[in-house]
Amino acid sequence: MAETRIRLAGREIALDPSGAIYDHETGTLIVSDLHLEKASSYARRRVFLPPYDTAATLSALARLVMRRQPTRILCLGDSFHDGEGAARMDGADIARLAALMAGREFVWIAGNHDPHPPAGLGGDCCEEVTIGALTLRHEPSRHGKGERGPAGEVAGHLHPAAKVSGRGRSVRRRAFVTDGERLVMPSFGVLTGGLNVLDRAFLALFPLFGFTAFVVGENRLYPVAPASLRPD
Protein backbone atom coordinates (compact mmCIF):
# COMPACT_ATOMS: atom_id res chain seq x y z
CA MET A 1 0.00 0.00 0.00
CA ALA A 2 1.31 3.38 -0.92
CA GLU A 3 0.10 6.52 0.76
CA THR A 4 0.04 9.85 -1.05
CA ARG A 5 1.40 12.85 0.80
CA ILE A 6 -0.10 16.19 -0.07
CA ARG A 7 0.06 19.68 1.36
CA LEU A 8 -3.23 20.99 2.61
CA ALA A 9 -3.21 24.65 3.61
CA GLY A 10 0.51 24.23 4.07
CA ARG A 11 0.37 21.19 6.34
CA GLU A 12 1.64 17.86 5.07
CA ILE A 13 -0.86 15.02 5.49
CA ALA A 14 -1.01 11.51 4.11
CA LEU A 15 -3.97 10.22 2.12
CA ASP A 16 -4.36 6.50 2.74
CA PRO A 17 -5.69 4.20 -0.04
CA SER A 18 -8.23 2.84 2.44
CA GLY A 19 -9.98 6.20 2.27
CA ALA A 20 -8.55 7.63 5.50
CA ILE A 21 -6.20 10.52 6.32
CA TYR A 22 -3.16 10.06 8.51
CA ASP A 23 -1.44 13.00 10.11
CA HIS A 24 2.08 11.77 10.78
CA GLU A 25 3.05 14.65 13.03
CA THR A 26 0.32 14.02 15.62
CA GLY A 27 -0.31 10.35 14.91
CA THR A 28 -3.96 11.14 14.12
CA LEU A 29 -6.03 8.84 11.95
CA ILE A 30 -9.13 10.41 10.39
CA VAL A 31 -12.04 8.45 8.93
CA SER A 32 -15.39 9.80 7.83
CA ASP A 33 -18.96 8.58 7.35
CA LEU A 34 -18.76 5.10 8.84
CA HIS A 35 -22.57 4.85 8.78
CA LEU A 36 -22.51 2.00 11.28
CA GLU A 37 -25.84 0.15 11.64
CA LYS A 38 -27.03 1.35 8.25
CA ALA A 39 -28.47 -2.05 7.34
CA SER A 40 -30.42 -2.29 10.60
CA SER A 41 -31.67 1.23 9.98
CA TYR A 42 -33.10 0.16 6.62
CA ALA A 43 -34.54 -2.97 8.22
CA ARG A 44 -36.88 -0.75 10.19
CA ARG A 45 -38.44 0.14 6.82
CA ARG A 46 -38.41 -3.58 5.94
CA VAL A 47 -35.57 -3.36 3.48
CA PHE A 48 -33.35 -6.21 4.55
CA LEU A 49 -29.76 -5.42 3.61
CA PRO A 50 -27.10 -7.90 4.78
CA PRO A 51 -26.70 -7.26 8.55
CA TYR A 52 -22.91 -7.50 8.36
CA ASP A 53 -22.09 -3.92 7.48
CA THR A 54 -21.15 -2.81 11.00
CA ALA A 55 -18.83 -5.77 11.50
CA ALA A 56 -17.29 -5.31 8.04
CA THR A 57 -16.71 -1.58 8.50
CA LEU A 58 -15.19 -2.05 11.96
CA SER A 59 -12.94 -4.84 10.65
CA ALA A 60 -11.69 -2.59 7.87
CA LEU A 61 -11.03 0.09 10.45
CA ALA A 62 -9.24 -2.43 12.67
CA ARG A 63 -6.92 -3.42 9.82
CA LEU A 64 -6.14 0.22 9.22
CA VAL A 65 -5.46 0.86 12.90
CA MET A 66 -3.22 -2.20 13.01
CA ARG A 67 -1.21 -0.80 10.14
CA ARG A 68 -1.01 2.78 11.39
CA GLN A 69 -1.02 2.36 15.16
CA PRO A 70 -2.39 5.89 15.63
CA THR A 71 -2.42 7.64 18.99
CA ARG A 72 -5.72 9.25 18.13
CA ILE A 73 -8.71 8.34 15.94
CA LEU A 74 -11.13 10.97 14.66
CA CYS A 75 -14.49 9.93 13.19
CA LEU A 76 -15.61 12.82 11.05
CA GLY A 77 -19.37 12.44 11.63
CA ASP A 78 -22.18 10.20 10.42
CA SER A 79 -20.44 7.48 12.34
CA PHE A 80 -23.87 5.94 12.87
CA HIS A 81 -26.56 5.92 10.22
CA ASP A 82 -29.17 7.16 12.70
CA GLY A 83 -29.50 8.36 16.26
CA GLU A 84 -30.48 4.97 17.65
CA GLY A 85 -27.76 3.10 15.79
CA ALA A 86 -25.48 2.73 18.78
CA ALA A 87 -28.30 1.14 20.75
CA ARG A 88 -28.86 -1.46 18.03
CA MET A 89 -25.24 -2.63 17.90
CA ASP A 90 -24.77 -6.22 18.91
CA GLY A 91 -22.32 -7.46 21.53
CA ALA A 92 -19.64 -8.63 19.12
CA ASP A 93 -19.56 -5.29 17.34
CA ILE A 94 -19.44 -3.38 20.62
CA ALA A 95 -16.41 -5.49 21.59
CA ARG A 96 -14.78 -4.81 18.20
CA LEU A 97 -15.24 -1.10 18.68
CA ALA A 98 -13.96 -1.19 22.25
CA ALA A 99 -10.81 -2.97 21.11
CA LEU A 100 -10.20 -0.20 18.59
CA MET A 101 -10.67 2.52 21.14
CA ALA A 102 -8.53 0.95 23.84
CA GLY A 103 -5.30 2.75 24.63
CA ARG A 104 -5.86 5.75 22.39
CA GLU A 105 -7.81 8.93 22.17
CA PHE A 106 -11.06 8.51 20.24
CA VAL A 107 -13.19 11.42 19.04
CA TRP A 108 -16.72 11.34 17.60
CA ILE A 109 -17.39 14.45 15.58
CA ALA A 110 -21.11 15.13 15.25
CA GLY A 111 -22.75 14.51 11.89
CA ASN A 112 -26.20 15.18 10.46
CA HIS A 113 -27.18 11.52 10.88
CA ASP A 114 -25.82 11.41 14.42
CA PRO A 115 -25.96 14.94 15.89
CA HIS A 116 -25.74 13.55 19.43
CA PRO A 117 -22.83 11.51 20.78
CA PRO A 118 -23.43 7.75 20.71
CA ALA A 119 -24.53 6.74 24.18
CA GLY A 120 -22.48 4.39 26.32
CA LEU A 121 -19.66 3.78 23.91
CA GLY A 122 -17.04 6.08 25.38
CA GLY A 123 -14.79 8.43 23.45
CA ASP A 124 -14.98 12.21 23.27
CA CYS A 125 -17.56 14.14 21.33
CA CYS A 126 -17.38 17.49 19.64
CA GLU A 127 -18.54 19.57 16.70
CA GLU A 128 -15.12 20.19 15.20
CA VAL A 129 -11.43 19.64 15.88
CA THR A 130 -8.39 21.71 14.94
CA ILE A 131 -5.01 20.26 14.09
CA GLY A 132 -2.52 23.01 13.28
CA ALA A 133 -3.84 24.81 10.22
CA LEU A 134 -6.56 22.20 9.69
CA THR A 135 -10.17 22.36 10.86
CA LEU A 136 -12.06 19.09 10.84
CA ARG A 137 -15.84 19.07 10.71
CA HIS A 138 -18.54 16.87 9.22
CA GLU A 139 -20.22 19.17 6.73
CA PRO A 140 -18.17 21.42 4.51
CA SER A 141 -19.02 25.01 5.41
CA ARG A 142 -20.93 27.06 2.89
CA HIS A 143 -19.73 30.31 1.46
CA GLY A 144 -20.79 32.91 -1.06
CA LYS A 145 -21.03 32.23 -4.76
CA GLY A 146 -17.65 32.27 -6.46
CA GLU A 147 -15.81 32.55 -3.17
CA ARG A 148 -13.44 29.94 -1.93
CA GLY A 149 -14.18 28.14 1.27
CA PRO A 150 -12.15 28.42 4.46
CA ALA A 151 -8.57 27.23 4.05
CA GLY A 152 -7.59 24.10 5.91
CA GLU A 153 -11.09 22.63 6.15
CA VAL A 154 -11.35 18.84 6.10
CA ALA A 155 -14.91 17.54 5.84
CA GLY A 156 -16.89 14.45 4.87
CA HIS A 157 -20.66 14.28 4.43
CA LEU A 158 -20.75 14.28 0.62
CA HIS A 159 -19.32 10.79 0.00
CA PRO A 160 -17.31 11.84 -3.05
CA ALA A 161 -16.94 9.24 -5.79
CA ALA A 162 -15.16 9.67 -9.12
CA LYS A 163 -15.98 8.01 -12.37
CA VAL A 164 -13.37 7.34 -15.01
CA SER A 165 -14.00 5.80 -18.44
CA GLY A 166 -11.63 4.14 -20.81
CA ARG A 167 -11.52 1.22 -23.23
CA GLY A 168 -15.26 1.09 -23.43
CA ARG A 169 -15.72 0.59 -19.73
CA SER A 170 -16.02 2.81 -16.73
CA VAL A 171 -14.85 2.58 -13.15
CA ARG A 172 -16.55 4.37 -10.28
CA ARG A 173 -14.62 4.60 -7.03
CA ARG A 174 -14.49 6.58 -3.82
CA ALA A 175 -12.22 9.62 -3.93
CA PHE A 176 -10.67 12.46 -1.96
CA VAL A 177 -11.41 15.86 -3.45
CA THR A 178 -9.08 18.78 -2.78
CA ASP A 179 -7.79 22.03 -4.24
CA GLY A 180 -4.84 22.19 -1.89
CA GLU A 181 -6.72 24.46 0.51
CA ARG A 182 -9.71 22.39 1.55
CA LEU A 183 -10.55 18.73 1.26
CA VAL A 184 -13.58 16.43 1.24
CA MET A 185 -12.98 12.85 2.38
CA PRO A 186 -14.61 9.73 0.97
CA SER A 187 -16.94 7.68 3.14
CA PHE A 188 -15.44 4.72 4.96
CA GLY A 189 -18.53 2.57 5.66
CA VAL A 190 -18.94 -0.54 3.49
CA LEU A 191 -22.57 0.11 2.58
CA THR A 192 -22.20 3.79 1.79
CA GLY A 193 -22.77 4.88 -1.77
CA GLY A 194 -21.01 7.81 -3.37
CA LEU A 195 -21.95 11.15 -4.90
CA ASN A 196 -20.23 11.96 -8.18
CA VAL A 197 -17.63 14.67 -7.69
CA LEU A 198 -18.99 16.45 -10.78
CA ASP A 199 -22.26 16.99 -8.92
CA ARG A 200 -23.38 20.54 -8.28
CA ALA A 201 -22.68 20.07 -4.56
CA PHE A 202 -18.94 20.04 -5.29
CA LEU A 203 -19.17 22.99 -7.63
CA ALA A 204 -20.33 25.03 -4.66
CA LEU A 205 -17.17 24.09 -2.76
CA PHE A 206 -14.69 24.23 -5.60
CA PRO A 207 -15.65 26.96 -8.09
CA LEU A 208 -15.31 25.81 -11.71
CA PHE A 209 -14.48 22.34 -10.46
CA GLY A 210 -10.99 23.52 -9.60
CA PHE A 211 -9.93 20.39 -7.77
CA THR A 212 -8.07 17.15 -8.11
CA ALA A 213 -9.73 13.85 -7.26
CA PHE A 214 -7.52 11.27 -5.58
CA VAL A 215 -9.29 8.12 -6.66
CA VAL A 216 -9.11 5.08 -4.40
CA GLY A 217 -7.45 2.12 -6.13
CA GLU A 218 -6.54 -1.33 -4.81
CA ASN A 219 -3.25 -0.35 -3.22
CA ARG A 220 -2.72 3.25 -4.11
CA LEU A 221 -4.47 6.47 -4.99
CA TYR A 222 -4.74 7.86 -8.50
CA PRO A 223 -4.80 11.64 -8.88
CA VAL A 224 -7.24 12.52 -11.67
CA ALA A 225 -8.18 15.92 -13.09
CA PRO A 226 -11.88 16.83 -13.48
CA ALA A 227 -11.43 16.95 -17.26
CA SER A 228 -10.78 13.21 -17.23
CA LEU A 229 -13.80 12.43 -15.06
CA ARG A 230 -17.29 11.53 -16.11
CA PRO A 231 -20.66 12.46 -14.66
CA ASP A 232 -23.04 9.64 -13.76
Partner: peptide, 16 residues
Protein backbone atom coordinates in the same frame (compact mmCIF):
# COMPACT_ATOMS: atom_id res chain seq x y z
CA UNK B 1 -1.60 26.38 -11.80
CA UNK B 2 -2.20 25.34 -8.27
CA UNK B 3 -1.46 21.80 -9.23
CA UNK B 4 1.86 21.69 -7.51
CA UNK B 5 0.55 19.41 -4.80
CA UNK B 6 -0.75 17.04 -7.37
CA UNK B 7 2.31 15.00 -8.02
CA UNK B 8 2.19 13.93 -4.42
CA UNK B 9 4.97 11.73 -3.22
CA UNK B 10 4.08 8.12 -2.77
CA UNK B 11 5.59 6.32 0.15
CA UNK B 12 5.28 2.66 0.95
CA UNK B 13 3.32 2.23 4.11
CA UNK B 14 3.24 -1.51 4.25
CA UNK B 15 1.08 -4.28 2.89
CA UNK B 16 -2.57 -4.57 3.81
Amino acid sequence: QEAGFVAGRSTDIGSP
